[in-house]
Every structure is written in C-alpha cells, then in structure tokens.
C-alpha cells in the first residue's frame, strides 16, 4: 500500500497546477524511492518529468510499485478543496481502484477525505538519455517567466543563444523584434537573483514560446530555474524542489529556417 504524507499540500497543488495544461491523464508511479510522473503532451513536443522523492514526505510508505492513473482535471478539482496550509496524505491499496487524499488542518481539528477514481493509462515510458549540455544557465525563475511572457507578445518563437557575451533571448514578429541579454551576475545579498552561465560550446536554438510560457507556471515552486541547452537537442527546463525532488520539462527545438 501507499501512504505518503506531505507537510504542505500546497507543494502538490503547485506541481499539478504547473503541468495540468500540458498533460491530461498521467500515471503517478509510486515505489519506495518516491512518486514519479513522466508524460508527453499530445503533440509529442514537450515532456514533463516529475520526481517527488520519499524524503519529501514524512512518513512515506510504499511496499510495492503502484501506478496511479489520474486525470489531472479531476485531481485539480479535489486539490482545490485543500487549504494551502493543510497537510496532505495520499493513500492507495496495492491494486487500487481509487486514490485517497486526506487534508488535515495544522491549526484546527478538521480532517477532509476525498477519493478519485483511477484510470487505466497505457503510458509509453521513455528513456531520457544522459546529456552533456553545451550550455547551462541558472537564473531567477521569475526573470525567465518575465522574458517569455514579454516576448510572446511579439512572436511565437524565441531564439536562445548562449555565447561568451552571455545568453540572449531574441524574437522577431510582425510588429517588430525584441531581445533580452543576460550576463553572469552574482548578488551576494540575494543569491536567488544570481545568473550563472556555464558554457562548453556556443549554442543557438529556437523554441516555441507557447510551451515555455506554459512551463513557467512552475515558477512559484523554486526561486531559480535551470536551462540546459545543446545544439539540436531538446531544451531542459528544471525547477529544483526540496529534498532532491524536481520538476523538469523538455521541449523539442524548432528546426530549419
């Protein structure tokens, strides 16, 4: 059986909120290392990869591998019933028909119990190859969100170029063009504002802003976001969570010109 108690229901709410517009029906794969999710969007352009490690829960118990097939719209409806300060416990039997969600108020004696009917999801599990990226950029998540939201007003696509000069986000549209360049930057007082650029080779790739704006819904989960780029391979956008947990998005580049 599964029993996973999360001190902050809000974390799970934010994760589901960040992915629900990309993917609809997902298996939450539970085993003794934690709860993982991997799902591609319908067009096979973007992939979500979530890992909530067992250390993120207290307690965490999962005796055997359980796949919880859940419709994220249904999950969102139930998670709306949790207050952000509530404690969330996920429970399921070994061969479950439902997943149970228990919300407990830390301050009052209220206990709310919900269940969601599970789905049989025939999910293709993809192997994500280890990649030595040509450029890795860590930057404030809010800054990345701002850039993507600003540029989508002008264009569908953004080119991300990383060179010795820094990282340049540029777009061209019908009304004109826009570009934002960031250089490596260390803020001693506010390290969450740092911009760190590690580059082994110059990279230049073009991506759909629609997807990037979608990924940025995860901005509330982490102060910093990490972008990993190599020429002609999918972009990795990573939000690190506490206890070595993470929410990652992969996006296929646009090709040709």
């Amino acid at each position: 059986m599964l029993e996973a108690r999360l001190e902050q229901a809000n974390l799970f709410k934010k994760v589901v909120d960040a992915i629900k517009d990309l993917v609809q029906d997902c298996n939450f794969d539970c085993n003794d290392s934690g709860i993982a999710l991997q799902a591609m969007d319908n067009s096979h352009v973007a992939l979500v990869s979530m890992m909530l490690r067992s250390e993120s829960f207290a307690p965490f118990r999962c005796d055997r591998n359980i796949a919880l097939g859940i419709n994220l719209t249904s999950l969102t409806k139930v998670l709306k019933c949790a207050q952000s300060d509530d404690i969330l416990t996920l429970k399921a039997e070994d061969a479950p028909d439902v997943v149970e969600l228990v919300f407990e108020s830390a301050e009052s004696d209220r206990i709310s119990e919900y269940s969601i009917k599970l789905m049989d999801i025939d999910q293709e599990h993809l192997g994500i190859p280890e990649t030595d990226y040509g450029a890795t950029i860590s930057m404030p998540a809010a800054e990345f969100q701002r850039i993507c939201r600003d540029l989508i007003a002008l264009s569908e696509s953004v080119s991300i170029e990383c060179s010795k000069e820094g990282v340049k986000f540029a777009c061209q549209g019908d009304i004109g063009s826009g570009a934002v360049t960031l250089r490596q930057h260390t803020n001693v007082d506010k390290p969450e504002m740092n911009v760190e650029i590690n580059m082994s080779e110059p990279v230049s790739l073009t991506f759909s802003l629609k997807y990037l704006v979608n990924f940025c819904k995860a901005s509330g989960l982490s102060n910093q976001v990490r972008l990993c780029l190599s020429n002609e391979v999918p972009l990795l956008v990573e939000y690190s969570l506490a206890n070595n947990s993470h929410l990652r998005f992969y996006l296929a580049p646009k090709i040709g010109d």
């Binding site: 591609m40 067009s43 096979h44 352009v45 973007a46 992939l47 293709e124 599990h125 993809l126 192997g127 994500i128 190859p129 696509s157 073009t206 759909s208 391979v233 999918p234 992969y250 296929a252 580049p253 646009k254 090709i255 040709g256 010109d257």
Partner: peptide, 14 residues
C-alpha cells in the same frame, strides 16, 4: 519559418 520538431527522435521507449 522554422518548423516544430518532436521529442520522438530524441527519447526512445525504455
């Protein structure tokens, strides 16, 4: 205009 690629080429089934 550049066309959108997919992930199928990069991530194989495991």
């Amino acid at each position: 205009a550049p066309r959108q690629g997919t992930l199928n080429r990069f991530f194989g089934k495991s």
